[in-house]
Design a binder for these strands. Sequence first.
DNA 1: TTCAATCCCTACCGTTTCACTCGGCTTTAT
DNA 2: ATAAAGCCGAGTGAAACGGTAGGGATTGAA
Lengths: 148, 148
Amino acid sequence: MKFSTKGTYGLRAVVELATRYGEGPVSLSAVATEQGISEAYLEQLMRSLKKAGIVRTARGKSGGYLLTREPVNISVLEVLRALEGSTDVVDCVGSGANICENACTCSARPLFLKLQSRINAVLEETTIGELTEDHIEQKKRIEHARLS
Amino acid sequence: MKFSTKGTYGLRAVVELATRYGEGPVSLSAVATEQGISEAYLEQLMRSLKKAGIVRTARGKSGGYLLTREPVNISVLEVLRALEGSTDVVDCVGSGANICENACTCSARPLFLKLQSRINAVLEETTIGELTEDHIEQKKRIEHARLS
DNA sequence: TTCAATCCCTACCGTTTCACTCGGCTTTAT
DNA sequence: ATAAAGCCGAGTGAAACGGTAGGGATTGAA
C-alpha cells in the first residue's frame, strides 16, 4: 500500500517544470540536479509523462521538457496514473475492471469502494498548480527565516 | 499503491470469525474452505493477527481461532496494519517515522499528508462489526433473490 | 560542416516482495 | 493412543523496484 518512488519523483519533477512554466524547455539534467534524482531513471519517468500527454519535449541543443498545459489544469491523479499505472487500492474497484467472480459476496469490497472514492476525490481535486504555489510559499518562508 | 492479498484475505478471514463470534473456536480449514484461500498461506496471516492481539487460539483437537474482542471493537485499520505492516502511502507521513532530510522542501509531501489523513479516517472509523453486518445483509438478499 | 548538447530507446541487473508450499513439531479432546 | 488441530522455520518461482549502460537521432551554434 505504498506509492513507489516513481510517483514521488514524478510529481516533484512536474512541479519543477511548473515553477518554470512559460520559460521555455527545461533540460533533464536541470530537473534531475535540482531534485536530486538519477538522470537516467528520471528519463524513464519523463517518457511515461510524455506518453500520457502531460509533458512535451523539444529536441536538439537547448531542448528539454515542457508542460503541455497550465499547471492548474493538471490533476495529481493524472500524473500518478501516468507513473504508477493505476491508483486503485485493489483491482476490483476499477470502473468496469477486473471484478473477481465472487465480488458480490466479498466482505471487504464495500470498504475498498468507499476508500477508493475518498482517495480519488483528493487526487482529482488537487492540481499541480496548487502544489507548486504551496511549494514556492514554503521556500520563501525558509529563505526569510534564514536571513533573520 | 495496491493492497497485497494479505490485506484482503486477512480482512475476509476476520469477518468470517466475526460471523461466528461466540460460537467457540473456528478451525483454520473451515475459514480457508469458506473463503477459498490456501490453508497454509492463511495460517501465516493468522499468525500475524495473533501477534497483533486481534485473534487468539485454542490448541489441540477441536481447537481453532477466535476473535479477542467484539467485532465492533476491532477497526479495519488495526487489521490491515497487522497484515501489511503499515498503511502509509509513503514512509515520510508516519508519526515521527522516517522523515527524509529534505521533507520540508518536498513539493509532494503536503499532498501525501492530506491523503493519508483521509485514508486513516476511513480505516479507523470502519469496524469489523460493520463489515460483518453488511455482509450478512448482502448474503440474505442474494438468497432471497435466488428463491423467488 | 562539424560538434556538442540534448532527447530517444532497448536492454540488463541486483535486490526485495509476493504468494505461496513443504515438512516437521507440539498440544489436546476423545 | 490417536487423530485433529495449531505452531514454526525454511524454501521457491515470478514479478516489481530502482536503478545503470550504451548506443542512436535531432538540432542549435561555432
